[in-house]
Computed example of a mutant assay.
Amino acid sequence: MDWLQAVILGIIQGLTEFLPISSTGHLFLGRKLFGLEEAGLFLDTMLHIGTFIALIVFYKDILLKLIKKPFSRLTLLL
């Protein structure tokens, strides 16, 4: 797999993760577009882990508030 293909699949993952449709389906279509059969599960897992890390970084302030005050109003609302 070329690095450019991996970047494009990462962009597909990032753009479609929060849509109410399957980002995994879009990754499957992206792999078919590039003719990548060997990437499969490992690539999908790494892309999802990347999305998870990005969410943790983005919401770190809120997550820290929840950890510091587990019985706050914010926790109740969640």
Rank of each mutant, 00 (worst) to 15 (best):
L33P: 01
L55Q: 06
Y59M: 14
I67Q: 06
T45E: 07
Q5K: 05
I62N: 12
T45N: 04
T16C: 08
L36G: 03
K68Q: 14
F52S: 10
G35H: 09
L76F: 15
L36W: 00
E17V: 11
T75A: 13
L43M: 15
A54Y: 09
A39W: 01
F52L: 14
L33S: 03
E17A: 10
L77M: 14
G50N: 10
I12M: 10
E37P: 09
S22L: 05
I53T: 07
R73P: 03
T45C: 11
K60Q: 11
L19P: 03
L78F: 04
D2Y: 08
L78K: 08
E17G: 04
L15M: 08
G35Q: 03
V57K: 10
K69I: 08
G40A: 13
I53F: 12
K68E: 15
L64Y: 10
L29K: 01
L4P: 00
V57D: 05
L55M: 09
L47D: 00
R31P: 00
L78D: 06
L74N: 03
R31T: 05
A39Q: 08
I67E: 15
M46C: 10
I62Y: 11
L74T: 11
I11H: 10
E38N: 05
K69G: 02
E17S: 09
G10R: 00
F18M: 07
I21S: 13
Y59K: 15
L27M: 02
T75C: 14
A54H: 04
E17T: 10
K68G: 02
L29M: 11
T24M: 06
V7L: 11
R73D: 15
L76K: 15
L76D: 15
Q5L: 02
E37K: 03
D44T: 15
L43W: 02
E17W: 04
D44W: 01
R31E: 14
L19W: 01
R31K: 14
G50M: 01
I49N: 07
G40T: 04
Y59P: 12
E38W: 02
G14F: 03
A6I: 12
L64H: 13
R31H: 06
G35I: 02
G30M: 01
D2P: 11
K69R: 12
M46N: 06
R31Q: 15
T51N: 13
G50E: 02
W3T: 03
F28P: 00
R31F: 05
L41I: 14
L78S: 15
L66P: 00
E38L: 04
K32I: 04
L41G: 12
F58I: 09
I8A: 05
L77I: 13
T75K: 15
L74W: 03
P70Q: 08
K65T: 13
L76A: 14
L64A: 11
K68V: 12
K68N: 13
D61M: 04
S23E: 04
L64E: 15
F42M: 13
M46L: 14
T16E: 07
G40S: 08
M1I: 12
L66S: 06
Q13V: 03
H48E: 09
A54G: 07
L63C: 09
F18A: 10
D61Y: 04
D2K: 12
I56L: 10
A54Q: 06
E37R: 13
T24L: 09
I56P: 00
L36T: 07
A54F: 08
L63K: 07
T45R: 12
D2I: 08
D2R: 06
S22K: 11
E37A: 06
L27R: 03
W3E: 07
V57E: 09
F18E: 11
T75D: 11
L78Q: 03
